[in-house]
């Protein structure tokens, strides 16, 4: 099986006053169709930069990103047809929705941009999507600020699903949410994957969550991927010292496992 997303030797460099800073360095990463790959690391490790490079929000300095075998790192960036195949869910459900647009318009927007279907069909599809992600379709006339954090993230997911992409890159999609809501959103993503076969690149700082949600995990540290493998294997038998530190630092909600 050929990978849906294939990243090779990807680097991203920022120029700073103290010289160049490599946010991402020589990264290789594959995502197969329909699978979930977790990308884990601490703040500043480059995981978000990597995600932004893939969708063309941040220019890469070198390497290759192929989606379904086609290069994305061209001078013009991803084409409209390629964008249709991969979408993005942002971390902050408050900042990632235009505060002055109604929910239905926000979910329709991708269809408007890609001119898919008639206006009436687009509206119908937006209502379907709202229902699919657990929002009442009659709420389409409301503005984002009328919703809770979890509901807004559902709006963000519906927007990402509108174009029926094959890959969704989720950048810390649940880290701004409460625990009980986090579980709902993760379960929604899981159900959507089972139903639609969409693949996820799931970026998170929470290795425990990633271990549960992703089939494969890549651990990132100082711009590089230091360990990659099946999530069960990495959890049981981490090979890189940073992965071990990360696992040991997770506060497990059980008293019999106190570490200090």
């Amino acid at each position: 099986m050929t990978p849906l997303l294939s990243v090779r030797d990807l680097s991203c460099r920022y120029e700073t006053r103290d010289g160049p800073l490599w946010a991402v360095r020589d990264v290789d990463l594959d995502v197969m169709p329909g699978e979930t790959v977790g990308l884990v690391g601490e703040s500043g490790c480059g995981k978000s930069t990597l995600a932004r490079c893939i969708v063309g929000l941040t220019p890469a300095s070198g390497g290759s990103i192929r989606l379904d075998g086609e290069e994305l790192l061209t001078r013009r960036g991803p084409s409209l047809a390629q964008r249709r195949q991969m979408q993005f869910v942002f971390q902050d459900p408050f900042a990632s929705l235009n505060p002055r647009r109604r929910v239905e318009a926000l979910i329709r927007e991708p269809l408007d941009v890609h001119r898919i279907g008639t206006p009436a069909e687009r509206t119908r599809r937006a209502r379907e999507l709202m229902e699919r992600v657990g929002l009442h379709p009659d709420w389409g006339r409301r503005f984002p600020h009328e919703f809770s954090g979890g509901q807004r993230q559902r709006i963000g997911i519906a927007r990402a699903l509108a174009l029926s992409p094959r890959l969704i890159i989720c950048d810390e999609p649940v880290s701004a949410l409460d625990v009980s809501v986090q579980a709902q959103v993760v379960n929604l993503l899981d159900a959507l994957q089972r139903e639609l076969g969409v693949a996820y690149l799931f970026i998170s700082h929470d290795l425990a969550l990633v271990e549960i949600f992703a089939q494969r995990v890549a651990v990132m540290y100082q711009g590089r991927i230091v360990e990659q493998g099946s999530s069960a294997e990495i959890w049981r038998n981490p090979s890189h010292p940073f992965t071990r530190t990360l696992i040991e630092a997770i506060p497990i909600p059980r008293v019999d496992q106190r570490s200090f």
């Binding site: 969708v55 929000l57 409209l80 964008r83 249709r84 993005f88 902050d92 505060p99 927007e109």
Partner: peptide, 22 residues
């Protein structure tokens, strides 16, 4: 730099459209 603008770049909206509508 706001995320909702970047979210429009991700769906493929053109620069003028982003400036005007977002």
């Amino acid at each position: 730099e706001r995320e909702f603008v970047q979210s429009c770049r991700v769906i493929g909206m053109s620069g003028p459209a982003i400036m005007l509508t977002q």
